[in-house]
Design a protein around this nucleic acid. Structure first.
Lengths: 79, 79
DNA sequence: ATCATAATTTCCCGTTCGGGAAATTATTGG
DNA sequence: CCAATAATTTCCCGAACGGGAAATTATGAT
């Protein structure tokens, strides 16, 4: 369970995951539909990368993102 | 537990969370250090917003992001 | 040590973000 | 029904993204 607080956390975790899978950056870039440089910057923890690519990379790695701490009561339309 | 697959998922979840907390978009924007438009676009599911702001908003709401499925064993899509 | 492969940086530069504020369109209330 | 608050769109525009490819620098294997 990897708690993501900063973009650096995310980059670090994704880098480890990629290596774990034995993928190179170009391979992952291809699989995720982004450029190699995007992977480099993502893994380097660049804070201003675009969400879209981040999600695609995570999915290409077989991972998922879970939002925690915000599951209060069921959605109340009258709130 | 909110599994985030797309930026739309995220936007939807964050919008509900904000309402649950009784915050307006400008209030959240201020708390997260982003512009109001950023909140609007984030909640609308815009795929190209910057990660930095997303993380700040989530934290301003008291939530967290968890990366799942990437610890340990290699991912085998054919398993 | 040496060659091969991977990783990262740099370059150019079109695309697009995203801030603030005003204008417009819901929503809610008196 | 009309006023007030919230939500979203629009405007202008500087700043930054990020794609491909080549160059440079790790990293590793034989």
């Amino acid at each position: 369970m990897n708690q993501i607080k900063t973009s650096a956390d995310l980059g670090c975790a994704l880098r480890h995951a990629r290596k774990q899978l034995g993928l190179t950056q170009p391979q992952l870039a291809l699989a995720a539909g982004v450029g190699v440089r995007f992977i480099v910057e993502l893994e380097a923890g660049k804070p201003t990368i675009r969400l879209e690519g981040v999600l695609r990379v995570i999915q290409a790695l077989g991972g998922g993102l879970t939002l925690t701490g915000l599951d209060g009561e069921p959605y109340d339309p009258a709130a």
